[in-house]
Nucleic acid binder design. Sequence first.
DNA 1: AGCAACAAATATC
DNA 2: GATATTTGTTGCT
Length: 293
Amino acid sequence: MTVAARFEADITPTGTDYDTVRRVIERLSRDYREQPTLETIAADLGRSPSEVQKTFTRWAGLSPKAFLQAVTLDNAKHLLGTEGLPLLDASLELGYSGPGRLHDLFVTHEAMSPGVWKARGEGLTIAYGYHPSPFGTALMMATDRGLAGIAFCDGDEEESAFEDMARRWPKAAYVRDDAKTAPYASRVFDPGRWRADEPLRVVMIGSDFQIRVWEALLDIPMGRAKTYSGIAGEIGSPKAARAVGAAVGRNPLSFVVPCHRAIGASGALTGYHWGLTRKRAMLGWETGRLGAG
DNA sequence: AGCAACAAATATC
DNA sequence: GATATTTGTTGCT
């Protein structure tokens, strides 16, 4: 099944793949100490083990068990010894050695002038639309210069997600235009279409400090993570870990600018604007893509 | 004032 | 001893 086709099947708000997957991840994250069996999890969801197993594997590209290993490593402090904490060693090797090395979305970004930031988006026209994604419904926002924002929501949260985004540039004019944002959605969530010859244009609207942080995030390869303090050191303010955290949290382009790859120094996942479960989901999903690539 | 942090110190098993 | 929990400090919005 192609990725696009899977999105089609995903379009109903409840009972989506992501919905099932999310609940499995929640369960695994909470009870990983007990290493719950597939059978128990399925029983609690009121589904058969094979149903859960299939849905999960189709979505993540790896079994619930492998996923469990990938995300519970946020408690494996010993992996933090080296820079750039590999999420799953074997997969990482695969990701780098293949001819079509799975790097990120090749992103060309430009920073909006501080003027636009200070004017809170005044004079800017932003088209937006809602699209299904592996992590729930994605709200995409674009200016004519490129992609400017991505938000996530489940079910009936579309309004609040929009308001969350619109608050960032309160004076911009917003126009609903799904046709304009749809191409971005299909590009962003389909790793098969992440190519250097067709870079994704994004615009970053934020303060100097924020943009430096977001650029640092773009440097983190898929399936890896960095600590907040590591990022702070990299952008030349080694003591600003906490400020980095705040800036990461304000990242308007979630997923494209991989804010989910920033974790605490202990390996704990700390926070995520669109929900910790979604952060785990993204990390696990990426681990799965690496293994498949 | 308020944070998606951190390191060191202290309490708990 | 190894892990939880608390406390002081921190830089940027």
